[in-house]
Amino acid sequence: MIVATLAFYLFAILTVASAFMVIASKNPVHSVLFLILAFFNSAALFLLLGAEFIAMILVVVYVGAVAVLFLFVVMMLDINFSELRQGFLNYLPIGALVGFILLVEILLVVGGWHLDPDALTVVTAPTSELSNMTNTEQIGNLLYTKYVYLFQAAGMVLLVAMIGAIVLTHRQRPGVKKQVIADQVYRRPEEAMAVRKVEPGQGV
């Protein structure tokens, strides 16, 4: 048991420390790499909770896809890092104010949290059917039965966002040669080449 506790503190400390380094490091590429470390450690925390499906999905989606795009964009930036740090003190009060307001909001929400006594009994008495399932199956069962409409709605929102992003960034460029694979496949040797009999010394 003590190993699990030690592991929890290790991952928790690493998560908080790397999250702090995301905002503290001077180089934006380092920031993204620390962000990835933070994702990793939170995935490890999920594993300690026994939520292996969420842990793996966190790594696949956030580390494997989202953070790659972040890194992609940040690496392409051409910025002067020392210039970026000037004016840090000017903005500090505003940043500190925003941070303080967010902290108060979180404290209010978490402090006002109150569990229904009935809900507690439901949690502590798992149904025999559910306790035999892996948590992938449990999530699937909930998502596709009880919350299926909300799930579909979330999918629709993502679809609209995706179409919107494509419409906004897509532009027709005239005069660009495009490869039409179907035409190439349908081409026969007879259309494309001619066999000539060339006499010696005559040329084509």
């Binding site: 990835i36 292996e52 499906f53 793996m56 999905i57 790594v59 696949v60 580390v63 494997g64 896809a65 790659v68 890194l71 892996t134 948590n135 992938t136």
Partner: peptide, 16 residues
């Protein structure tokens, strides 16, 4: 239980 997801996650990290 999630072996295949683990492999998928590891192979998606290879890009780093």
């Amino acid at each position: 239980n999630v072996g295949i997801l683990y492999l998928f996650a590891i192979s998606s990290l290879g890009v780093y």
